[in-house]
C-alpha cells in the first residue's frame, strides 16, 4: 500500500513554549516512568513474600545510592502525576480552562509536587 502524504499535526514549531505544554509532556513522561516504577513496587512486594534473604537483597539495592535516586525520582513523579492528574480531572469536569487559570494551576501543581516530595522525604523513616 503506498504511503499517503497527509498533513501532519501538530506542527510543533508554530507553538509558543508554555507552562501548559511543558506540564503535558512532564505528565506523560512521569506516567511512563511510574509504569517502570511499578516494577520496583512489585519487586518490593514479591521479594517480601520470597523471604528474608531475597527481601534484604532488594532493600539493599533500594537503599544504595542508585536506589535512593530512583526512589526519589519515583516519589517526585508520583506527586507530580497525582497533582497534574487531578488538574486534568478538573478540566474533564469542565472547569479551569481559562488561559490564566490553567497557567496558575500548572505552576501550583508543579511547585506543590516539589513541596510534597520534600515533605515526604523529611517524613519517611529510614
Amino acid at each position: 500500500m503506498p504511503e499517503i502524504k497527509r498533513p501532519l499535526s501538530p506542527h510543533l514549531g508554530v507553538y509558543k513554549w508554555e507552562v501548559a505544554n511543558t506540564l503535558s509532556i512532564f505528565h506523560r513522561a512521569a506516567g511512563v516512568f511510574l509504569s517502570l516504577g511499578m516494577l520496583v513496587l512489585a519487586a518490593w512486594i514479591i521479594s517480601a513474600a520470597m523471604g528474608q534473604s531475597t527481601y534484604d537483597c532488594v532493600l539493599g539495592l533500594l537503599r544504595g545510592p542508585l536506589g535512593i535516586v530512583l526512589l526519589f525520582g519515583l516519589s517526585a513523579a508520583v506527586f507530580f502525576h497525582l497533582g497534574n492528574g487531578i488538574r486534568h480531572l478538573v478540566w474533564d469536569a469542565g472547569y479551569g480552562f481559562d488561559k490564566h487559570v490553567a497557567r496558575i494551576s500548572g505552576w501550583f501543581v508543579f511547585l506543590a509536587s516539589l513541596v510534597f516530595t520534600g515533605l515526604f522525604w523529611l517524613g519517611v523513616k529510614s
Binding site: A48, G51, Q52, Y55, D56, L59, V78, L82, G85, I86, H88, L89, F120, G123, V124, K125, S126
Partner: peptide
C-alpha cells in the same frame, strides 16, 4: 481509574510515612 487512584495513592503515601521500619 484516575479517580480511584487519588485516594488509593494518598493512602499508600501515608502508609509509607507511617511505617516505623522497612525491615522484612
Amino acid at each position: 481509574t484516575a479517580v480511584a487512584l487519588v485516594p488509593l495513592t494518598l493512602w499508600f503515601v501515608f502508609a509509607l510515612l507511617g511505617m516505623d521500619s522497612f525491615e522484612h
